[in-house]
């Protein structure tokens, strides 16, 4: 059940984000990253978005210069996994405003925050588009107000 890992890969195979919902050693992670990147990058555009790698089904999709790669159980629904990935991309697009690879590189924490509001333990936790983004922006607002408050303190207003 559920997504085991989500990896964002550039076309050159560089990792932009990686989230693991299963417990594996660093060595194993490195191996999976290397193997999966190799498999995915070798695929042509017309081919289907699914691959078999060991006992995992790799579901990937390319958005502009980035590959979104997930590993799911072989009994899971590949098609809905594509929709989950797509939802994630949509949310980032709204959040960053026309998201591009550079946004994700320089603000990768935000990309992780959005992901954490969308998935826990590899399971989708919220299907409302609005709610996820609202939660993120409210949390951003808390951070901003903290920073603002701190600034005031530093300047001696409070």
């Amino acid at each position: 059940m559920a997504i085991r890992y989500l990896i964002l890969l550039s076309r050159q195979g560089k990792v932009r984000l990686s989230k693991w919902f299963i417990t594996v050693s660093q060595k194993e992670k490195t191996k999976v990253l290397r193997d999966v990147a190799q498999l995915v990058l070798a695929r042509r555009t017309k081919m289907c978005n699914f691959l078999e790698y060991k006992d995992v089904k790799v579901v990937y999709r390319r958005y502009a210069s980035l590959f979104f790669v997930t590993g799911i159980d072989s009994t899971d629904n590949e098609l809905i996994t594509l929709e989950i990935v797509h939802r994630y991309v949509e949310q980032m697009d709204k959040y960053y405003g026309n998201v591009c690879e550079l946004d994700i590189i320089f603000n990768f924490q935000k990309a992780y925050f959005i992901l954490d509001e969308l998935l826990i333990a590899g399971e989708i936790q919220e299907s409302s588009k609005r709610t996820v983004l609202m939660c993120i922006s409210q949390q951003d607002a808390i951070e901003d107000s903290e920073a603002h408050h701190e600034g005031l303190v530093r300047m001696g207003f409070q």
Partner: peptide, 20 residues
């Protein structure tokens, strides 16, 4: 006590640590 600290701290905890 700061939210910004907790937010990044939990993110780091999830990424850098695992149950073992």
């Amino acid at each position: 006590p700061r939210f910004a600290d907790k937010r990044l701290g939990y993110l780091g905890t999830m990424l850098l640590l695992d149950e073992n």
